[in-house]
Each structure stands twice: as structure tokens, then as C-alpha cells.
């Protein structure tokens, strides 16, 4: 279903640093999850039109009006690191 190379690639895209053991374990686990989902393809969908969602709902929008929100301090406080009024993030490296 999914091979080690694919797991390695997806981990890289998600910026996850996996050990060799983890890669092997996740390859097995992800394959079993994907196999489970694969049961869906047993259904005959020949005459079922494609959709992007399960609930029949469209055009949910709000007016362009300001609403009060949580204070800036409370929002900043939740971050792992802050500096003055900023969120602080570790050094960014180009690949």
C-alpha cells in the first residue's frame, strides 16, 4: 500500500525527523490504515456523481463586520515562545 520511501518523503514534507525504526513501524501502520480505507473501493460507484463533501450545504458566509475577539496577550501566551509583541520561532533554514 505504502512503501518506506513514501513514508520518508511524507515525513520530510511534514518536517518530521523519523528514526529508521519509526519509519519501518509507520510504514506498516499506515499501510494497514490505507487498506482499511481501501474497503470503500469495493462499492460500485459507477453511477454516483463525485462530490467534495458528505453534507449537502453551500454558501455559508458572514457579513464583513468586526467582532470582538480574544485579547492579543491571551493569544500570544499560548505560543511556545514570545518576544515582545511577536511570536518567536527557531532559526529558519533554507533546505
Amino acid at each position: 500500500m505504502i512503501d518506506r520511501e513514501q513514508v520518508h518523503k511524507v515525513a520530510h514534507l511534514a518536517r518530521l525527523d523519523l528514526t529508521a525504526d519509526e519509519e519501518a513501524a509507520f510504514t506498516k501502520q499506515l499501510s494497514s490504515i490505507l487498506e482499511y480505507f481501501e474497503q470503500l473501493s469495493e462499492l460500485d460507484t459507477e453511477n454516483v456523481p463525485p462530490t467534495t463533501r458528505a453534507i449537502e450545504l453551500s454558501n455559508v458566509a458572514r457579513p464583513d463586520q468586526l467582532q470582538p475577539t480574544v485579547s492579543h496577550d491571551e493569544l500570544l501566551k499560548e505560543a511556545p515562545a514570545q518576544e515582545d509583541d511577536f511570536f518567536r520561532v527557531p532559526q529558519i533554514l533554507n533546505d
Partner: peptide, 26 residues
Amino acid sequence: APPNTNVSPICLGYPGVLPVLNEKVL
């Protein structure tokens, strides 16, 4: 505006929030 004053849990992607489209944008 001063840094991080025009922010909400939605713009910050905090868990459990629900984005709703601004009708003017459409």
C-alpha cells in the same frame, strides 16, 4: 497596526476554530 493586534484564534489556526467566508470577499 502594532504587531499581532489584528489576530484571532481563527487567523492563528488554534484548535477547534471554524473559519467562515466573508461575503464581501466572494
